[in-house]
Design a protein around this nucleic acid. Structure first.
Lengths: 292, 292
DNA sequence: AAACTGTCTATTGTGGATAAAAGACAAAAT
DNA sequence: ATTTTGTCTTTTATCCACAATAGACAGTTT
């Protein structure tokens, strides 16, 4: 098979949810915009919905005949894009499995393992190489540099430089900039989670990403914003395999964020720098602690 | 054809030069190390040299029969790797040709233009995307973000952060660190070029790269060192199409480098920072000036 | 006249095939 | 006891093919 129709399946599932809320679907271009796919895919979705007798479709008329049932949905594992599958599989190998630094990475073996073609694995590795965890020997294998203490230190060093600068730009943003209202929303979410920390501490990870990305974005520098991808992926996968003291760690980080947010609001560069440094220091310690 | 034998052809040409200097070639593994290729390639080279009656080859004995002539060499255009060809071709399109920001980049069209398969073009674009000049729309085209004033400003902002930090680490290096002798060599080269600036000003570009890379390397941070790749490629191609006042520009930069080097030697953080800032400021101005 | 649909074409994403290049291992030579 | 060579296997780099997806254009509907 040349290409998996995951775009279609995922959009179909999302379209079923839209269908549950109305008695008739909108026009094809409108659906395309809503779901973020082309009309070709929309028409494939509508055709499938007609087959399943979910809708009666005649040109502009797309009347809902019945509510979607659980079996109408495509299973979740069929809607993941191939690159996501490769990424997860690879990260599990190098972060969870005892992968030693210096180990060779074999495209063919990886492809066989995942059950995919070499081209996709190869492209993944090229994309992934910018994270500094692997390196290519031309005409030969890739070398795993490993998720080591050095890696974490180098990563956090740059992160701290970038975030201090971004935080300073944030504080200097015009008062009517949309970032301030984004910050309000993020702050409110902090309070919500803290109020029910025992049940909701797992939501921290996503909120953390949103908050720091917002700060980095205010640098208006593509290199700084892009760098945050590395932080995101490292933290995302790393915390999946390191859940010790997650509740306390997250509670503490939430409090630090609130101080940091208050400092940003004060627009006082000295306060901002101090709060930012304090939080970054404890984030670094957390990361280093979890390495071995 | 599946793979161009450019590795073989390039190594063959380099081996011809070795051959011109001795009466017998060394062992296969030794040749492999010298030329940086595998024994498989070495044996292909030896076979070819035997065919051309350049050597008499019997097991360990590889006796030189005659000196190589110009026609023994493979033509230079056959020794370039495909990714180099794609890179050059692409950079000419986006830097020299009037490529507008926002323009779409089409893998198929690019591949047809260059006369290569789409896979190679695609892999090049993925690798190249980390330079922040292009961006992918999934399942669709790439978008050219363009070599604009914003790009240059964002690039230099990060460069300045990284270089100031690297210069500070450099000054703190132990006195017996090899970087100091590398610096001696680079400094000497500066004096040589300055002494004959009218004829040799073109050598500045390569020397500039060596010098700044040396400084960045002392940060011992892979992200800082890797970032210098972006600077390198931008300056490399950019100066190929912007040669106005090259002589004066280079002479001035050489003088600034000498100040900068003297400051590093002083190991005084204040002097280092001042010299580094002065040079970076004029480098930024030069880059911005040449944009439009 | 503006938006929508039917139809068709072009491009991307991915597996598979193949020559080039790397590399493993045992036998042979110093 | 190394080092080198002969032979063979494995892996990478690259092209090609094809389904999925995007996108263009003309005719149709509101």
């Amino acid at each position: 098979m040349a290409k998996q129709n995951t775009v279609f399946k995922d959009a179909f599932n999302r379209c079923l949810k839209l269908l549950a809320e109305t008695s008739a679907l909108p026009s094809e271009p409108e659906l395309g915009t809503t779901l973020g796919v082309s009309r070709t895919t929309i028409r494939a979705i509508l055709t499938r919905m007609e087959e399943l007798q979910l809708i009666a479709w005649d040109k502009r008329a797309k009347v809902v005949l019945r509510q979607p049932k659980a079996e109408d949905y495509y299973p979740a594992e069929e809607t993941d894009s191939l690159s996501d599958i490769i990424e997860r599989s690879f990260m599990r190998r190098i972060l969870a499995g005892g992968a030693e630094p210096g180990m060779q990475i074999n495209e063919l073996e990886l492809a066989r393992d995942i059950g995919t073609g070499t081209t996709s694995v190869r492209e993944f590795l090229i994309r992934f190489s910018r994270f500094g965890l692997i390196e290519k020997r031309p005409n030969s294998h890739w070398v795993l540099k490993g998720f080591t203490r050095e890696f974490a230190l180098e990563l956090t060093e740059v992160r701290e430089m970038f975030e201090l600068r971004s935080a300073a730009s944030f504080a200097a943003l015009a008062p009517d900039h949309t970032a301030w209202t984004d910050l309000d929303r993020i702050e409110a979410m902090h309070h919500e989670i803290l109020a029910d920390i025992d049940n909701r501490y797992k939501e921290f990870s996503e909120l953390d990403e949103r908050f720091h990305l917002l700060v980095h974005t205010s640098s208006s520098n593509r290199f700084i914003v892009d760098f945050y991808d590395i932080i995101t992926i490292v933290f995302h996968y790393h915390y999946q395999w390191n859940k010790t003291n997650a509740r306390e760690r997250n509670a503490r980080a939430l409090e630090e964020h609130l101080d940091y947010i208050a400092a940003l609001r004060s627009r006082d560069p000295v306060l901002v720098e101090a709060a930012c440094r304090r939080h970054l220091k404890s984030a670094r310690e957390t990361l280093l602690q979890s390495i071995q």
